[in-house]
């Protein structure tokens, strides 16, 4: 072999070698993040996805059963009821956002002690869920609850708010709004502070009153934040589980069957009935629903969200 042939090859080789080495370094640098991501998010997701096509006992390997889990889920009345409950809950909880906007705007008006209000509204967020459940169970108790007592003063007949499945979802939603208000207030409050004061000054010179300012300045300029809060609230509402668990008190609650959400069904399949494959299917279906709803929100935002 002549040296004239070898040389270019060597050069090429060195170049690829060098290129590969820089790649290697780059991969090495992102490896910690990637490995963490892969182990904690990617792998569980893939494994759940695979399991959704399998019949998996609690212990030991499962076997593939095609789309059996999916057909079973779609044919299951409990699933549709849970879907309806989840949708109703999510719909009502979203009404908490206008409420949060109003409160955030009001707190913004307060010149002193703004932090105190924020802390007060934020308290439910840092309170133990079980404690919240107990307090609300007491408030909503059908026989000696605070709410029914207040109602009785104005002549409204009391109800078994957390023991009658005609009312449980509404009871969850009220507590859900109350629990979510704190976080939404903080985010919206930050958004309000980004609105330049000059706009309000200029508009009041033009004779705009507070209400007009709210609708013409605050709302449009806050819309990106509102959108963000809406997406977050929707996702967490679609994943609601804990309120069913803590507010109904026990699985012997007669309202339990009419009050299940999708994630509660998932919990039941995975941890009570020992059906991991079926549970995985529920998780995947919920994921698809959440992705679809979020995509829809991103599509719709073009119509109402105003970026500067």
């Amino acid at each position: 072999m002549s040296s004239s042939v070898v040389k270019p090859v060597r050069q090429v080789r060195r170049r690829t070698g060098f290129a590969a080495r820089t790649d290697w370094w780059a991969y090495a640098m992102i490896a910690p993040a990637f490995i963490g991501l892969a182990a904690l998010y990617l792998w569980p997701f893939l494994s759940t996805f695979l399991k959704s096509f399998m019949n998996v006992p609690v212990f030991g390997p499962g076997e593939f059963n095609g789309v059996d889990n999916y057909t079973k889920l779609i044919g299951d009345d409990a699933f549709w009821r849970a879907l309806g409950n989840t949708a109703l809950y999510t719909g009502i909880v979203l009404l908490g956002i206008p409420l949060a906007i109003v409160f955030a705007a009001l707190i913004q008006q307060v010149s002193r002690g703004r932090a105190v209000y924020r802390v007060l509204f934020f308290l439910p967020v840092v309170t133990l869920p079980v404690a919240i459940g107990m307090v609300w169970r007491f408030i909503l108790n059908g026989d000696f609850g605070l709410l029914n007592w207040v109602f009785s003063l104005v002549g409204i007949p009391g109800q078994y708010w957390v023991a009658d499945d005609r009312f449980t979802i509404y009871a969850f939603a009220v507590v859900g709004i109350w629990m979510g208000l704190g976080v939404n207030l903080i985010i919206l409050g930050a958004g309000l502070q980004n609105i330049p004061v000059e706009l309000y000054e200029a508009s009041s010179l033009d004779g705009a009153n507070r209400v007009r300012q709210f609708f013409s300045i605050t709302l449009p300029l806050l819309s990106p934040t509102i959108f963000f809060v809406t997406v977050l609230t929707t996702i967490s509402a679609l994943q609601m589980f804990d309120l069913v668990f803590i507010m109904l008190g026990s699985v012997n609650n007669t309202a339990i069957d009419g009050s299940k959400t999708i994630v509660y069904l998932f919990y039941e399949a995975a941890f009570v009935q020992f059906k991991q494959g079926f549970a995985a299917t529920i998780a995947i279906v919920l994921l698809v629903i959440i992705m679809a709803v979020t995509a829809l929100q991103f599509r719709l935002q073009k119509k109402w969200v105003i970026y500067d």
């Binding site: 026989d143 609850g145 007669t254 309202a255």
Partner: peptide, 9 residues
């Protein structure tokens, strides 16, 4: 009733 027993066991 079952509802009363659900509210208070």
């Amino acid at each position: 009733t079952l509802q009363q027993l659900s509210d208070t066991e």
